[in-house]
């Protein structure tokens, strides 16, 4: 049924209890993605496979194309050529809404939360729920109370204790709390894939640990997670596989078991190259 050939995995280095994840069909795949910005090449034919129940980290130097890759997978950019597949079927993501409709949620580096709106409004932004009956269907009135209650549930599910009042404006929250709101939004609505772009970049040690905990929780609940990060200890802590992006292309996929951080950084910076798997 699948129309795409699967990419070779570094399966030898995947732990036994995780092997079964890679026997299934990839939930999200990309083949030969190319995007250019004028004369600058953003992506130079990148392939990705992502499986349900794994955390795939994407690392790379500044300008290597990490964020560009992610924006293509989430509909924020439209690639010039190449094809994206969800559950093996080709999809065309022209806007962020398109990605959302096929079950891909994103936590952007800039968080994409609206400071002036409250937490519940942010969680439900662009997918507001209306009141039942004519109040909702004719007057298009929002179900503010219901959304607030469900937002509280979503935040609670992630084990976030520090946020209590869903009516609080996001601008009054700390950086870690805003991150939690953004992750909660992705977790609440992402049915297949959650993508996090540098989620720990602006956070302290304790807040970072909380976000990493959330990532593990998302994976264990059966979602596929993509984590873009500069922070190698964080990547090696939570990732199942690591996609190394270099100069707009993929320099290879490794696992925390197959390579240590130093080797990963060496591949990332071009100091060494990954031998192609036979």
């Amino acid at each position: 049924m699948s129309t795409i050939e699967r990419l070779p995995l570094t399966v030898d280095h995947i732990r036994d209890d995780k092997q079964h994840i890679y026997e299934a069909e990839p939930v999200l795949s990309a083949r030969k993605l190319v995007i250019t910005f004028g004369r600058v090449i953003g992506l130079d034919g990148v392939d990705v496979d992502l499986y349900q129940g794994e955390v795939l980290a994407v690392i790379g130097d500044n300008g290597a194309g990490k964020s560009t890759l992610i924006k293509c997978l989430t509909g924020a950019y439209v690639p010039d050529s190449g094809q994206i597949y969800v559950d093996g079927s080709p999809v065309h993501l022209r806007r962020p809404q398109d990605a959302r409709e096929v079950g891909i949620e994103t936590v952007y580096q800039q968080l994409a939360v609206i400071p002036a709106l409250d937490i519940a409004s942010n969680l439900y932004l662009a997918r507001e729920e209306r009141r039942p009956g004519p109040l909702g269907s004719v007057l298009r009135m929002l179900d503010k109370k219901g959304m607030k209650e469900r937002a509280g549930g979503a935040v609670q599910n992630l084990g976030i204790q520090t946020i209590q009042n869903m009516g609080q404006a996001v601008e009054t929250l700390s950086g870690g709390q805003r991150q939690a709101v953004a992750v909660a939004r992705a977790a609440a609505f992402g049915s297949k894939v959650v993508i996090l772009d540098e989620p720990t970049a602006a956070l302290g040690v304790k807040e970072s640990a909380a976000v990493l905990g959330m990532i593990k929780q998302l994976r264990d609940s059966g979602l596929a997670v993509i984590l873009i990060s500069h922070n190698m200890p964080h990547v090696w802590e939570v990732a199942d596989r690591i996609h190394i992006q270099r100069l707009g292309g993929c320099a290879g996929v490794i696992t925390p078991q197959s390579h240590d951080m130093g080797e990963g950084v060496a591949i990332m910076t071009g100091a060494t190259t990954l031998e192609p798997t036979p």
Binding site: Y108, L111, L125
Partner: peptide, 17 residues
């Protein structure tokens, strides 16, 4: 809500859908 969101942070509003 979208009017407020677009006015406050147009890029975040767009990324939020």
């Amino acid at each position: 809500r979208h009017v407020f969101a677009v006015g406050d942070d147009p890029e975040s509003a767009r990324l939020s859908g």
